[in-house]
Simulated assay, not measured.
Amino acid sequence: MNVLIEWIYKSKKGVQTVFKSEELPAEQALLIAEDLERTGRTKQILFTDQFDSSWTIKELRGYLKGIETEPHNITVYFDGGFDWDTKLAGLGCVLYYNQNGKSYRLRKNVRATYLSSNNEAEYAALLLCLQELETLGAHHLPIEVKGDSRVVINHLSEQWPVIEEELYSWANKVEEKMESLGFQPRYELISRKKNSEADRLATQALTGVEITATIERT
């Protein structure tokens, strides 16, 4: 979860002003806020998350302590590919997350035979990511969702209406899974270059190379 820090600064002569930080990971923001508090010149410190909810230092400290042993700070990358000649689809999923004070990357791909278009493959890849998060035990957290599919990102962020019946069904599946897991997604359309890991996994799945791997990041 990323937050903004807002604090009231009071000078030695009693002059006060309000400062606001850039968006920071909650763990970093808490460290900075605790340092500001030690100066003795901050009258009030509040954090604001992406949903405009406000947190005190005590509340944010308690929240971070509560999720420490669970997957958190989750970023999802997804990509789907479809071969019109073979009617096969490749689904690529990359998850970055923290747990127990460590950082991890999970990569997974799947070859699918039940899809009929590239857009369906993109949705199916995102659903695969959510299923993997469910297996990890992640729930009730804000997550970052990044992909290069304009259709999926713009549909789910409600920038575009979903007109095609088959895609409407896929959008519902994704949204229902998000809701059942208690995720608060923030969608971001990225370039194909920035989505290269998920793209490579989808391509490998199409060629019959299936991968499931988790590594600790240093």
Rank of each mutant, 00 (worst) to 15 (best):
C93Q: 02
V94L: 05
V94Y: 00
V94I: 09
L95F: 12
L95G: 01
L95P: 02
L95V: 05
Y96D: 13
Y96S: 12
Y97W: 09
N98A: 15
Q99A: 11
Q99K: 12
Q99R: 13
G101D: 11
G101P: 09
G101K: 13
S103C: 10
S103T: 09
Y104Q: 08
L106V: 03
L106R: 05
L106E: 06
L106A: 02
R107K: 12
K108I: 02
N109T: 06
V110H: 10
V110R: 07
A112M: 10
T113Q: 14
L115M: 10
L115C: 08
S116I: 14
S116T: 13
N118M: 08
N118H: 11
N118V: 10
E120V: 04
A121D: 00
A121L: 08
A121F: 09
E122W: 00
Y123L: 07
Y123V: 03
Y123K: 07
Y123H: 07
A125G: 06
L126P: 00
L126I: 06
L127D: 09
L128D: 07
C129M: 09
C129D: 00
L130G: 03
L130Q: 07
Q131H: 15
E132Q: 10
E132D: 11
E132N: 04
L133V: 09
L133R: 00
E134D: 12
T135E: 12
T135S: 11
L136A: 01
L136T: 02
L136Y: 05
L136S: 02
G137V: 14
A138R: 01
H139Q: 13
H140D: 15
H140T: 15
H140W: 08
H140Q: 13
P142V: 08
P142M: 04
P142F: 04
P142D: 11
P142E: 03
P142K: 03
I143G: 02
I143E: 00
E144L: 10
E144V: 07
E144A: 06
V145P: 00
G147I: 10
G147E: 01
D148P: 02
D148V: 05
S149Q: 05
S149V: 03
S149D: 07
R150G: 12
R150S: 12
R150E: 15
R150M: 14
V151M: 08
V151H: 05
V151W: 09
V152E: 01
I153E: 00
I153Q: 01
N154Q: 12
N154Y: 13
N154D: 06
H155S: 05
H155Q: 13
L156R: 04
S157A: 11
S157H: 02
S157V: 08
S157E: 04
S157Y: 03
E158N: 13
E158W: 08
E158L: 09
